[in-house]
């Protein structure tokens, strides 16, 4: 089951169309299409290996799709001249040089975009890392690294944000902070795409959900609509998600035995 319900109230900024990507014999994405609109948080949820990270990497030009295309503002990411001012991203909070300070990490990113280096300190303040600015990131907890990653994503004041599992490693206080931050960013009119393998992390912050499993989009709909879809008798979003992904696993199994869909 796959449905695509474009919202008439938002302008799409990220447009992924019929993207397929395999790593050797292993298909990671199979004809994936979705859009991410401004002014809302779009959650991308699916089990591990569903293709969430691959989809984000394709958008960022880090993976070349075998078929299809991914556009940002109507252009390929690699054709953007100062990409971080259009799309901020956080794929892996641990992608840091451990000997470099948080401040220097943001400063080199700022230099690469022609952004004043002073923004680094402003951002560190905003994510609550001002006191750790000059410390080497090698000693940072995962939560601190997530905050630094958020700072890096926001550095260019981008209209779109791609965040891969940003709740990982956050303590309850951090989770609340992250939710408020995402809601605030969407309220500012930005397009926010957030992935998680736990639907619970997303259900209170996302207005729109893309359910991904086995490299396919199983659902792409507003949260309210999804909850209502099978909602005879108050089935929660988690149950909907669970049923969707189970269906996918079954059909994938039958495909593997040679049955055509």
């Amino acid at each position: 089951m796959s449905q695509h319900t474009p919202s008439s109230t938002t302008v799409e900024i990220i447009d992924v169309a019929r993207v397929s990507k395999s790593f050797g014999p292993v298909p990671a994405l199979r004809g994936v299409s979705f859009t991410v609109g401004r002014g809302r948080v779009t959650g991308m949820v699916g089990p591990n290996g569903a293709g969430k990270s691959t989809a984000m990497r394709v958008i960022l030009g880090l993976h070349r799709p075998d078929a299809g295309r991914a556009l940002v503002d109507g252009r390929r990411y690699r054709d953007l001249s100062r990409p971080l001012t259009r799309v901020g991203s956080l794929l892996d909070a641990s992608a840091l040089h451990p000997a470099r300070s948080a401040r220097d990490h943001l400063r080199w990113l700022a230099h690469s975009q022609g952004i004043p280096a002073g923004h680094a300190d402003t951002l560190l303040e905003r994510v609550g890392l001002a006191s750790a600015a000059r410390r080497r990131t090698g000693g940072f907890s995962l939560g601190m690294r997530q905050r630094l990653g958020i700072a890096a994503a926001l550095l260019g004041d981008p209209a779109a944000l791609l965040l891969d599992e940003p709740f990982n490693g956050l303590d309850p206080e951090g989770i609340v902070w992250m939710r408020d931050l995402l809601a605030g960013l969407a309220a500012e009119g930005r397009a926010v795409l957030v992935s998680s393998h736990l639907i619970g992390e997303l259900q209170h912050v996302a207005q729109h959900l893309i359910v991904l499993a086995g490299g396919r989009v199983l659902a792409d709909a507003p949260v309210a609509e999804l909850s209502a879809a099978r909602g005879s008798g108050g089935i929660g979003l988690e149950d909907v998600y669970f049923r969707l992904t189970q269906d996918a696993a079954r059909s994938q199994g039958s495909t593997m035995t040679g049955e055509q869909r």
Binding site: R57, L60, G61, L62, Y77, R78, L80, P83, L84, S89, L91, D92, S94, A95, L96, H97, P98, L109, S112, Q113, A152
Partner: peptide
């Protein structure tokens, strides 16, 4: 090679896709 050890190359190429 430090770019590859922890995946920093992804951040680098996201900032400069060339």
């Amino acid at each position: 090679t430090a770019e590859y050890r922890r995946g920093l190359i992804s951040v680098t190429l996201a900032a400069c896709p060339r």
